[in-house]
Design a protein around this nucleic acid. Structure first.
Lengths: 189, 189
DNA sequence: TCAAAATATGGAGACTGTCTCCACTTGTCA
DNA sequence: TGACAAGTGGAGACAGTCTCCATATTTTGA
């Protein structure tokens, strides 16, 4: 699966350029206005090279998403190490909204690709899923969060926030959703 | 905008056939495996006719979505007339999950199309948005639901449930999300 | 009832983006 | 440094989308 056979130096270089360029374009939100072939040219490689490294737009997204997820997981780990569990969870979720807000184009692009080919990106979500599960589990252990709902529900809500990009009052609503979620999660009593 | 100029009899007939066929195919989940031209043939009309009535896949989805939204709005109105507000809201949300569960293919198809061209379908959501807002407002007036969050947040959560289709434990998670949402909405004390 | 006008039809073929293939280039290893 | 493996790029095959218009159907009004 993840048996990364060592790439030749130039191949690795091209791959990195492609991912970097992709992240850049994702962020501008122009990814879908672009012919995939043109994207290759824009990154300075031939279309053959693009297709060898990333057979589909989704494969490219997956690579970008990986980096994104890794960063979020680091953040989750850090919060879990420095704050009480409930606070770590709340801070993480609020931070997530900030993050999506700050990289709207990226989030929108990934969410769109995720919707049409969810399978491909689902794998990349595993790590994030685990990070959230850990945050929730810690809070449950601590006694501040109820234990009768699955952490998958939290992921589903996050997914929803990401997917609902273009709602006119996205930011305010997203904040409200997190508020509702956190209040709903609080252990009754 | 909605200036429906009267269609010729045969045109109206063809349009109805197309929408009916579309709903059918949406439900099987095979819509994206199908060439749009083939869909026309399948419905028994020429491709030109298909394109005249529905210039894009999204336009077709919008028509199907309209019927769906209308049914949901009726249900919301009915519940609001026969149950205490909080209960009406809860029943509506639970019913929504049932509905999506029962028409998984349709929900998945609409959610996917919504993700890539959200603008087109957003308009069709207006009525549903209003219905949910009414349910929430009634519950707030009744005093059973907090008044410091916007009903848009509820829509966002619903959107998320619909968008998260292919999560392995979708049903259980969706139920949990509704539970969290309803508990979060309850007026503190 | 029956032209004439208005409206709608269907499917051939132009168009456009995706993806493959392979002759050639570049990197690696002994 | 030579030989072999790995990678490259872009021309062209291919597939789906969409337009166009000669033909068919419906509506209008005399």
């Amino acid at each position: 699966m993840t048996a990364d056979k060592p790439l030749r130096a130039d191949a690795r270089r091209n791959r990195d350029v492609l991912v970097a360029k992709a992240r850049e374009i994702f962020d501008t939100g122009e990814f879908f206005d672009l012919r995939f072939d043109d994207f290759a040219l824009l990154a300075g490689v031939g279309t053959g090279t693009l297709y060898r490294h990333f057979p589909t737009r989704e494969a490219l997204a997956e690579a970008v998403y990986h980096g994104e997820v890794a960063a979020l997981c680091d953040r989750a780990r850090e919060l879990r190490a420095t704050l009480p569990a409930a606070e770590a969870l709340a801070t993480f979720l609020r931070g997530m909204v900030d993050h999506i807000d700050a990289h709207e184009g990226l989030a929108r692009t990934l969410a769109t690709l995720m919707a049409e080919r969810s399978g491909d990106l689902a794998e990349g979500s595993q790590a994030l899923e685990q990070a959230v599960a850990d945050l929730v589990a810690a809070a449950v252990r601590e006694g501040s969060v109820r234990d009768d709902v699955d952490s998958g529900a939290v992921m589903m809500v996050l997914h929803g926030i990401g997917a609902a990009h273009d709602r006119p009052h996205w930011r305010a609503e997203a904040d409200d959703v997190i508020t509702l979620l956190l209040d709903g999660l609080r252990r009754p009593q």
